[in-house]
Nucleic acid binder design. Structure first.
Length: 594
RNA sequence: GGUUCAGUAGCUCAGCUGGAUAGAGCAACGGCCUUCUAAGCCGUAGGUCGCAGGUUCGAAUCCUGCCUGAAUCACCA
């Protein structure tokens, strides 16, 4: 539609003012609700061609378009805005064109067929997943869905931080206090079980420190003299030396954790094609450091440590290898990046990691580019903001966290309670009902998280998160269920599949819906280009709300013949399809009824 | 202090490649179940778009400065 009007304007300027128009001067947008018309052309930029007043220019161009374009029924001018009213026929053609396209969204040219790697989740194995991980997981998974929809070959990876002092703390606490207890003895999920001992360590450690301080030591001295900390460090040393007993315990406890994580991942509906473990990768990267040294890109300091100077990229000097030759975080990441390139030959590699690590990823990319890996340009840090609580920041050490499993349980419970109270599902089997509660509870959680711009820090208010009214996942699901209900009803009527033969006056709301539908493709494209699922969420809400209003208008009027009108059935069907696909891009399932 | 990001209704958030009278939801108040699903719909009230300049026909949107907040600038990962 815009295309033809664009051409009309080019022609009009040529014809009326004898000028060739600059493409950037054509501005077309959908008309704001409070004005008459469907499509608006802004004529201010055209004044330099017409050399007339805005109103006169708009009038001239409007008359020209009316003459040449049969799809335009009428126009009006408000200041420099030319509002064009599109004919029913044209809207109908537009809709038929949309509906015949499959899938319902158009695919960005950019990136079709390329190989894309996404790293997300990245948990530590000493405690259960929390709200921050939920945001990470949902964003990562949605990214996967979106990029896949764009035709890219996407692989999901996870890197598990399964080694280091924090795991040793859990291990030590378990050895000292557990008496051989296992998760199944305790009835706890494996990750919570191991987390319990991590907390135990921290508490005992704090107690020990307090005791030492009360004996007159400073805090530093106390930390130095702590037997618990020494024990944890000793375990780490043994682990690195390959001590069998330590390794066995480490494996055993990690497996408990993985069991727990897998359950959470499964409920959330996320998964991975390949999982990397830091215990395998932590030694990687040294050969790269050697390579950099030989090329003279890195340098050695007197104490033997290796550094790189990134001041040309406005970054600092960065340590790559400690004086004792051990690797640091960035060294590992250099190694895994190279390994992953060798594994996948990716065109793009997204790291879904919180914005607290922005600096780290700048450094990573900068170093890889200095080493002249041409694929380094494909590396991209998908940086997202933190999740804060009304009381402030989440702090796992102070127990101020929202546990992922608890949160999911709360959502599922609330969904059940609400649904039972409404009693609309009474005739369904327990299994069917559970399935629906699950979809609603998880839909609420996922939508709540994904509707906010990933880049922004967000506030998580537990009370609001379980609200199922308004701009929420359940509202969209409700709309979808309603559409399905309409279609079920429509099946019992005979109606023509050929909506072209449907003669009618297009209702304002109907053309509004068609207008909205046309935006879905571009929204997906934009979401893919800006890596922003929240665009899809907010757009789908808008569409669902519009549909509810439309639907309601008919109810109020008592017009029950919707099922007899093939256009309305087609419209409902198509909107249902769009909602399902859009929500699918967020990893949210739609219930047939609720 | 350097860098990056953010500041829009009481609260949570949209809107940001410059366009018309800045939008939703929640919370508040008032209506609507004899309607194909009321998890809904309609209405009322609520704004100096952090502040100050600049750019221009036009600025929440772009530029500059300032204020406020967050993250980061580790031989932690």
């Amino acid at each position: 539609m815009e295309r033809t009007i664009e051409r009309n304007i080019i022609d009009a300027v040529k014809h009326l003012y004898d000028s060739n128009i600059d493409a950037a001067d054509i501005q077309i947008q959908t008309t704001r609700k409070e004005f008459e018309g469907d499509v608006t052309a802004v004529v201010f930029p055209l004044l330099k061609y017409s050399r007339k007043a805005p109103e006169q220019t708009a009038e001239d161009i409007g008359n020209y378009i009316l003459e040449v374009n049969p799809g335009v029924r009428s126009f009006n001018v408000v200041k420099g805005f030319l509002n064009l009213e599109i004919s029913n026929r044209a809207w109908l053609d537009e809709f038929i064109k949309l509906r015949s396209a499959a899938p319902a969204y158009s695919i960005p040219e950019k990136g079709k067929g390329q190989t894309t790697l996404i790293e997300y989740s990245s948990p530590n194995t000493n405690k259960p997943l929390h709200l921050g991980h939920i945001r990470n997981n949902l964003l990562g998974y949605s990214l996967y869905k979106i990029l896949s929809a764009c035709g890219q070959r996407v692989y999901k990876t996870n890197i598990v931080n399964d080694r280091g002092i924090h795991i040793c703390k859990s291990m030590l606490a378990w050895k000292l206090f557990a008496n051989g207890e296992t998760p199944s003895d305790s009835g706890l999920k494996g990750d919570h079980f191991v987390g319990k001992y991590y907390v135990k360590f921290e508490n005992e450690y704090k107690k020990e420190i307090r005791k030492l301080i009360s004996r007159g030591m400073t805090e530093e001295e106390a930390a130095d003299k702590s037997e618990l900390m020494a024990g944890a460090r000793e375990l780490l040393r043994k682990w690195e030396a390959g001590d069998k007993e330590t390794l066995d315990l480490w494996k055993r406890m990690n497996n408990w954790v993985y069991e727990g994580f897998n359950k959470t991942y499964e409920t959330l509906g996320v998964d991975f094609d390949k999982i990397y473990y830091e215990s395998d990768t932590y030694k990687l990267g040294r050969s790269i450091v050697r390579e950099g040294l030989e090329k003279g890109i890195f340098y050695r300091k007197e104490d033997g440590s290796v550094w790189v100077n990134l001041s040309s990229d406005k970054l600092d000097e960065k340590l790559l290898l400690r004086a004792d030759g051990t690797a640091v975080y960035i060294t590992q990441d250099l190694g895994t990046a190279v390994e992953r390139y060798n594994d996948y030959k990716f065109d793009r590699h997204y790291y879904v990691v919180g914005n607290e690590q922005n600096y780290h990823f700048q450094v990573l990319k900068s170093i890889l580019k200095k080493l002249e890996y041409d694929w380094a340009d494909g590396i991209h840090h998908f940086s997202y903001g933190m999740v804060n609580l009304p009381e402030g920041k989440m702090k796992s050490r102070e127990g101020k966290v929202v546990d992922a499993d608890d949160l999911i349980d709360t959502m599922l419970h609330t969904a059940r309670e609400m649904s039972e109270e409404l009693g609309k599902l009474d005739e369904y089997s327990a299994g069917e009902k559970e399935n629906i509660y699950r979809k609603i509870g998880l839909g609420a959680l996922k939508y709540f998280i994904l509707k906010v711009d990933p880049r922004k820090n967000m506030l998580f208010n537990p009370r609001e998160s379980i609200d199922f009214n308004g701009n929420t996942g359940p509202f969209i699901q409700y709309t979808y269920a309603r559409i399905r209900s309409v279609l079920r009803k429509a099946e019992s009527y005979e109606y023509s599949e050929d909506i072209k033969r449907d003669v009618f006056e297009l209702n304002k709301k109907e053309s509004d819906l068609v207008k909205l539908l046309r935006r879905f493709g571009p929204v997906v494209v934009e979401a893919a280009e800006t890596l922003n699922p929240s665009l899809i969420a907010n757009y789908t809400y808008e569409l669902a709300k519009e549909f509810n209003q439309f639907y309601h208008d008919y109810s109020i009027l008592g017009e029950k013949e919707i099922a007899l009108r093939s256009f309305r059935i087609g419209l409902s069907e198509y909107i249902g399809q769009i909602i399902e696909e859009a929500m699918g891009l967020l990893g949210i399932d739609m219930p047939e009824r609720m």
